[in-house]
Design a binder for these strands. Structure first.
Lengths: 194, 194
DNA sequence: ACGGTAAGCGGAACCGGTTCCGGTTGCAAG
DNA sequence: CTTGCAACCGGAACCGGTTCCGCTTACCGT
């Protein structure tokens, strides 16, 4: 479980040995702390528990949200990879709806991911692979269904992702699961082929 | 311009004289500072410039967002009051779309209102009159149009408000006005009578 | 007028995120 | 094996929001 491999290291000179060690340790620790205390845990705590200074943490993860993103990147990837299977198994609209509800549940399960989500969907810097992953998954769901795409042709995966993000931001709280469901229905009504 | 009259004071013993004076001064100062530096200005600055301690500010406005809400309540009210006129003047869907775009533009114009907006739409405590105002305006637009309501009967003003809030949260940034427009279209397609 | 007290006041202290910078060190060239 | 230096490190310092608490005061009843 040491070292989120698929790193963005692809086109970046390899890290110095100590730096790499610290990065691994930070991700490891952050994952543990988030799991234990929710994604709201303090950055300072994580740094201390990982045995490094905050400066070190910040050089690798320039903001709290980026750390969160890095920690959950794996799980989001898994979520996205499930899209093709859904698309192949269920009727188009149901596949889309199901995937969206899974997305909401995932976000809700992490607690306090709202800010991180906003950053991931809003910030257009490179290194935020997560956003592309999500858009790709949605694109898959929109265009699936043999010969009868689920969505109106103009419906754009990026836009749908943004809309879903907006819904998450509003409906991520405690007793809001039903609100999320209703808003997803609303969104689908606008997206789906009439 | 001293003393937002329509206060929630309705069923609250009147404030002590000095307290009322401070509240007025705070609102006045906050409005000025927000206008000068955007809604991101620091609470401490506002308190200092109003000549009171932060403690005083916080007793009256228990969080930064609530202060923002109070400062802009008037303008939001005005926005909402424009709804009936739009409803009477334009075809139902156009009225709704126009109002929504005004809403977005208003939020964008204030800069850094995103957090305040989330609180206003999300927090269900009393004293947040703004939310009710907005829902009412939307309700008006949804059910207007002589004999031919704009919206599908199940469309709920609260839900539409939440969706619009979500859109705002995602599309409030710099070059995002067009995203907002597209998302509003998407939303309308789900809301409007087919 | 007077006194008691609830309401109010100010600001020091706390907390979490973020930045900065003087000192350290992996590593590669000589 | 040195040595030069870019990359790194740690943590003190800063900043903004929020809480806490000892002191003050407006106001009501007498």
């Amino acid at each position: 479980m040491t070292g989120i491999e698929g790193n963005a290291a692809r086109h970046r000179r390899p890290l110095r040995a100590d730096a790499q060690r610290n990065e691994d340790r930070l991700l490891e620790t952050a994952a543990a702390v988030f799991a234990r205390e929710g994604a709201g845990a303090s950055v300072k705590d994580i740094a201390r528990e990982a045995g490094v200074g905050v400066g070190t943490l910040y050089r690798r993860f320039p903001s709290r949200e980026l750390l969160v993103e890095a920690v959950y990147r794996q799980e989001v990837r898994r979520l996205c990879e499930a899209a093709p299977h859904l698309a192949a198994t269920l009727p188009p609209v149901d596949a889309l709806r199901t995937w969206m509800e899974r997305f909401i549940d995932f976000m809700a399960a992490k607690g306090g991911m709202a800010d991180a989500l906003r950053v991931v969907l809003t910030d257009d810097s490179e290194r935020l692979q997560t956003r592309g992953l999500l858009a790709e998954a949605i694109d898959h769901l929109l265009s699936s269904g043999e010969g009868r795409p689920a969505a109106r042709p103009e419906a754009d995966a990026q836009d749908v992702l943004m809309a879903l993000g907006g819904i998450s931001l509003m409906a991520l709280g405690e007793d809001r699961r039903d609100l999320a469901t209703r808003l997803i229905d609303l969104l689908l009504r606008g997206v789906v082929r009439s």
